[in-house]
Amino acid sequence: MSGQEKLEKIIGKINRLPSLPDNIQKINQMIDSHHSTMDAIGRAIADDQTLSAQVLKLVNSGFYGLSSTVSSVTQAVVFLGLNVVRSLISTAWASSMIAKSFPGLYEHSLACSRTCYLLSKKLGIDEPEEVSTIGLLHDIGKVVLAEYLPEEFTAIQSLLKNKRIRFCDAERTVMGVAHSDVGRLLLQKWNLPQAAIDPIAEHHGFQPSSPHARQTAVLILADVIVRAEGFGWGGDNVMPELSSEVTGTLKLQPKDLRPLMDEIVDKMHDIQRYNGGNKA
């Protein structure tokens, strides 16, 4: 199969990917119309027990760095603002998909999201809550792979077994595209904001001139740190690329890493290091 044929096959399968559930689409419309009050939106979420349980679980998972426990959806809406809630309800739904994909990916994603939040705060990036959402969703393309492209997923895994190669390079060999590209297609389908899609689409191919380059750089650094520390499992044991363009965008020096990483590790007390299947 040629590269183009492979790509068309993948896109054909992606067109059959799940849409956001109706209830989530309805709430997104309420938020976008600007005619609904926060209270009405909070109630619409609260009416859906599964969704509100997912939202509260996510809000209280250390995801947004909130220090007190949030016990009602309305409170979460007030705390976080409508923009964040809009991504949050899609994310809450997506996180249940991530948890079902392959072992360790949810822990990797959660660790990335916390790290994105902390790095954004420390490095003065706007909207740390949104960057945190991006961190949770950044590998959603791998979920698609595991769930909807089983043949390709198996081929990628056997490649990883036989060769020291990055997951994204194995994907490019097998499919012609990587999970970052697959993620872009899925999140476009879900109508997520461009500010969330760009960093996810570019986290294995940094574009310094992109309007969201700083957010993307934070995501890449977070992914690199979480993999360096070994929290969760992203599918391979090879460090991703960390280019001087990424560290330059964030104006970082190697000596800046230690205080950041010490603090990040403090926030991961509930997330295990991957230890090759051995019990720690």
Partner: peptide, 23 residues
Amino acid sequence: QLLEDRFTDTENNPFLQEMKSIV
């Protein structure tokens, strides 16, 4: 062992070397 494995061939990147020592 896993740390050594994943940092193979990163000697030329000062950021990754610093990270490895921190981890």
